[in-house]
């Protein structure tokens, strides 16, 4: 079953257009959502949440239209933005009181357990917390009503590696249930390399690819050499190219390259960079 189905969704802004965006996130998977700043990642997430009103297309959450079943959908979605949108003058304990009234599935014991586990103070006001603490609190709030789907919009940006690791660990625990799914938008591609099952790449409001991470990393290769040596690479195999003082670097499709030619496994960063900047 698909947790999210985005079909041909479009949205026009003054100077930006999200154009015919389509992708799916299956249950039991973590979908990495990558792209440059302003490529349309946050816009897509906001469209899924109906914070932005779509102009065309269809969005299904667990097979149901996200507008006609908006309330039921929201109860199943945990959301973490890059900032924590809760009143700054409240403590974690007070937030527990509010959220327990709002969500019928709210689990106070689990909330306090997660606070202890991630060392988030119960009695400190949100405004006195560090960015890392706020992000951990945001994730705890999103997890404590047992959602089936997590939408994370750059949750690890600006966090130190230790906090990032704790967050990723929590997400991996969440994924132990096969009915759960995560859409994880991030600039930090190393995080996605660690935990994502699929990668969806958006560029200038259009989806360039949405594929299984392993297929992507093993389906493509990086070839490095001098321009003279490059004749061994068939032109139709080259996806992206980068020139440097030491030679050239090609992003190539492995299936079109002679297997005896040695290719390096690309990182998601390289895929992004060569797809966008070095497009042939």
């Amino acid at each position: 079953m698909n947790a999210i189905e985005v079909k041909h969704v479009s949205k026009q802004f003054k100077s930006f257009r999200l154009n015919d965006v389509s992708f799916t996130v299956e249950c039991g998977t973590i979908a990495g959502f990558i792209g440059q700043n302003g490529a349309g990642k946050s816009t897509t997430i906001k469209l899924i949440l109906n914070l932005f009103k779509k102009q065309a297309g269809e969005i299904l959450i667990f097979g149901k239209d996200h507008l006609t079943h908006e309330i039921a959908s929201k109860a199943q979605i945990g959301v973490v933005f890059d900032e924590l949108h809760v009143p700054n003058n409240l403590t974690a304990k007070e937030l527990n009181n509010i959220y327990s009234k709002v969500y019928s599935t709210w689990d106070s014991d689990y909330f306090y357990r997660l606070l202890d586990q991630l060392d988030v103070p119960k009695f400190d006001k949100v405004k006195s917390m560090s960015r890392g603490m706020k992000m951990k609190l945001g994730l705890i709030l999103a997890l404590s009503y047992h959602p089936k789907l997590l939408l994370l919009d750059e949750p690890t940006s600006g966090l130190d590696p230790i906090v990032r690791d704790e967050v990723l660990e929590l997400l991996q625990k969440f994924m132990k249930n096969d009915e759960h799914a995560i859409l994880f938008s991030s600039h930090i591609t190393s995080d996605l390399e660690k935990i994502a099952d699929t990668i969806t790449f958006i560029h200038k409001g259009e989806i360039l690819f949405s594929e299984n991470k392993d297929d992507l990393l093993y389906g493509y290769g990086i070839w490095k050499g001098t321009p003279e040596q490059a004749i061994v690479i068939p032109k139709h195999a080259i996806i992206g190219k980068q020139d440097s003082a030491f030679g050239v670097k090609y992003l190539v499709k492995r299936e079109f390259v002679n297997p005896v030619i040695e290719l390096e496994k690309p990182t998601i960063d390289e895929l992004m960079l060569l797809y966008v900047k070095g497009r042939v």
């Binding site: 914070l51 929201k74 933005f81 949108h85 709002v102």
Partner: peptide
Amino acid sequence: KRYKKMFVLFPMP
């Protein structure tokens, strides 16, 4: 206005 996002994400009509 400040906490619109929090309110909007609550599962309430």
